[in-house]
Design a protein around this nucleic acid. Structure first.
Lengths: 349, 349
DNA sequence: AATCGCCATGAAAACGTTTACGTTCCGCGC
DNA sequence: GCGCGGAACGTAAACGTTTTCATGGCGATT
């Protein structure tokens, strides 16, 4: 074994054929005698020949790599998302170039631009993207799929979680289990998910409890903001008998506030969150929540992109909106200690 | 804007210079008149010229990309690790090609081989790697850094968490706070971290409680195995007054067993885990544990690799072993409800 | 028996860079 | 006034593939 890697020429020389034949054999393009194929394969294996991907990319214009631009996501979400993407990518023989943790438009723009020419397509998950951003930073010809974005673009497919339906279903569940005064702890104003969940709450209230007033207190997805919201809710003249937080961390914070005030959950006030993070199962009482299958979102996004990459392959385009499941645990359950129930929901349309 | 991307030739033509000059200007190699530079830069900007990375890689032999091969890691760990790596990589202008979620030697081998030629160096985190694996799958010339591996290799640097020291310090803490009979719930036999934590337990017991017997029950890092271990420990004739689990999930499972049996924590039995996962803070009583700074591990690994990549740059090689901190919470604390205390520890050597 | 056409194969161009080497030009020292 | 050196710049080779096109051989059809 020398220090230099074997090239296609070395293989051709050893196998006493031309480089063209070697290329044909290794790529499965037809037109080569079985016995020639055999010889070439043997020599290639003997020399540990691996095609140089740079040279190949140079001429084919394809990198077999897709880029994922992600924000500095919350841990569990992030890892599940990458996991789903990676799994689907590997199944298709695609490589995954990631760039995570940016806050700020410029940061995100730099990340997108840096991937130019290195990837065949992109998965973009960022609250900073809009139509202008994409026009400015994406090469016109580069396929891309947007995740959880408010952008409505004809050029780029957008995949979202059914935040609205999930939130709506949770409110419905709370009302149907006898709660009347359902309050909502909102998430960050600028966050797309937060906005959708807010809409879901409003829609469900309008539909299932049209004569009851809305009760929305602000939050920012942090545990602290949930705690503050809990305190605020307890101070209200007519306390709610159910609280729905726009994410689990706020629900946990709210729960702490209730515990500290000696308020019984779920006897006096029911509580529910959104995301089904791992903690939800372990706080006591355990937290009812809306489960989002994040890995599925990643997988679906990659498959959508793959469909864009080669339109020939009749890859069916997966659904644009991913459903959420309601997970009923102790904080909204009838009987404490009951096993959690999951209620599958299908996305609309 | 045409459909085709501008090449260096286009820039050269427009700027009325040769491609060589364009290359020189854009790469900062000297030998070009300031005014020529100005013209070239202007034209390049106007045409939105971006050098083709494939062509560049082909001739320079460098990709400015590093590959990370990771196992199907536990969520929080995984995301923190990638985050650390990504941050450090971006600071150095390196791209990050990830391949996660594999179980099995063949799977890992395929992942490593698939990156051949696409990366300048590799970060490998897999319990399947050993010297033979590396010889078989890694090109001889490719720099690589191993994470949390038992491999002792002269060719590849290995970075580890100070599992042993962390475990030892936790046992010391338990003993110093008055516990006598400290039991240990072990992790998977084949796992490197588990082995090291086991050694730490034994070492600390030998040092701080030499006349007390060891008490080790098996586990496999899962919550269920922690629960079973808890039940087993309660059934012992002489119950331990402290239990140290090799990771947090098992500690949580054990805590559930204790709660269910009506055993008071920490009054009757103290409890501690390892990892400081998010849940540790939220179970009640909150869990004392050993915190590992995973993002730092990722960062250090990348910096080590970067140092290998260009030995000229006097990048100081970071420490081989990353320290852990002891986090004292309620399950091992004196007073319930006290704020958590963190005790920084420096790694040995 | 001659021609046609197909099939396996080879030669060479092309992809977009970097870089070694040549060339030109200018200023300076003799 | 001549040569010399160095700076600025251009030419062309090289990187390792894929792919188009040409070529030769051979069997089948007339």
């Amino acid at each position: 074994m020398t220090t230099k890697n074997a090239t296609i020429k070395d293989v051709a020389r050893e196998a006493k054929v031309s480089v063209a034949s070697v290329s044909r054999v290794l790529n499965g393009t037809g037109g080569v005698t079985p016995q020639t194929q055999k010889v070439v394969r043997e020599v290639a294996a003997r020399l540990h020949y691996v095609p140089d991907s740079a040279a190949r990319s140079l001429i084919t214009g394809r990198t077999h790599t897709i880029g994922a631009v992600l924000p500095d996501l919350y841990g569990e979400f992030f890892s599940e998302l990458i996991r789903g993407i990676d799994l689907a990518a590997r199944a298709r023989g695609l490589h995954l170039l990631v760039s995570s943790s940016h806050d700020g438009v410029d940061d995100a723009a730099a990340a997108v631009r840096a991937m130019r020419g290195r990837v065949d397509g992109m998965l973009i998950f960022s609250e900073y993207v809009d139509a202008a951003f994409l026009d400015a930073n994406l090469p016109a010809a580069l396929p891309a799929v947007l995740l959880n974005s408010a952008v409505k673009s004809a050029r780029y497919p957008v995949l979202t979680i059914d935040n609205r339906g999930g939130a709506s279903a949770m409110v419905q569940h709370l009302i149907e289990s006898g709660r009347k005064r359902v309050a909502f702890i909102a998430g960050s104003k600028t966050n797309f998910d937060a906005q959708q969940r807010d809409k879901g709450y409003r829609a469900a209230m309008a539909k299932f409890a049209p004569d009851l007033p809305l009760n929305i207190v602000p939050g920012d997805f942090s545990e602290e903001s949930g705690y503050r919201a809990g305190v605020e809710l307890l101070a209200q003249k007519k306390r709610p008998d159910a609280v729905f937080a726009a994410n689990d961390m706020m629900a946990v914070g709210c729960l702490m506030a209730f515990k500290q005030a000696g308020v019984q959950v779920p006897q006096e006030i029911a509580l529910a969150g959104f995301d089904d993070i791992l903690i939800a199962r372990y706080v006591s009482p355990s937290l009812s929540t809306v489960q989002v299958r994040i890995a599925d979102l990643g997988r679906a996004a990659l498959e959508r992109l793959a469909a864009l990459l080669d339109p020939d392959a009749n890859t069916p385009a997966p659904a644009q909106t991913l459903g959420c499941d309601i997970v009923v645990r102790e904080t909204s359950g009838g009987s404490t200690g009951a096993a959690s129930t999951r209620r599958p929901r299908r996305p609309p349309k």
